[in-house]
């Protein structure tokens, strides 16, 4: 039940953010520092989610981190092709290969 309330609130917050300046109808301009800050929101927030998932498990076992290598392979494909689907496909294939190799995690 409380999860439902949380998701309702998450929806309300998202809507409020989207409405913010549209609702103010040009009476309020976004301050320049705020716009500068916002530019880094996607990079920072998503990186905060990605890195811990790539480096899960035993930090002493860096060699045995299939997610790290699969993630780096995907990043390389993303860098060269800018193709989202190809990035995901590469990462998943790499992870499966590394997991199913003999002695894999």
């Amino acid at each position: 039940m409380s999860l439902w309330i949380t998701m309702l609130a998450a929806g309300a917050i998202t809507f409020a953010i989207r409405l913010s300046f549209i609702g103010a109808a040009g009476r309020i301009d976004a301050p320049a520092w705020f716009i500068r800050f916002l530019r880094f929101v996607p990079v920072a927030a998503l990186s905060a989610l990605v890195w811990p998932d790539l480096l899960v498990g035993d930090p002493g076992m860096l060699i045995m981190q299939p997610r790290l290598y699969a993630g780096l392979a995907a990043a390389l494909v993303a860098w060269t092709t800018r193709n989202v689907m190809l990035t995901i496909a590469t990462g998943m294939l790499a992870l499966w290969l590394l997991q199913w190799l003999p002695g894999g995690a």
């Binding site: 880094f40 990079v43 920072a44 990186s47 890195w51 993630g71 990035t87």
Partner: peptide, 26 residues
């Protein structure tokens, strides 16, 4: 996670973006 990688990597166009990625990861 791979979806996020696909979104973040093209955003790494300049030094400030790399710094944001590295600091957040660290």
């Amino acid at each position: 996670t791979l979806t996020f990688i696909a979104i973040v990597v093209p955003l790494l166009r300049d030094r400030p973006a790399w710094a944001a990625m590295a600091a957040a990861g660290l």
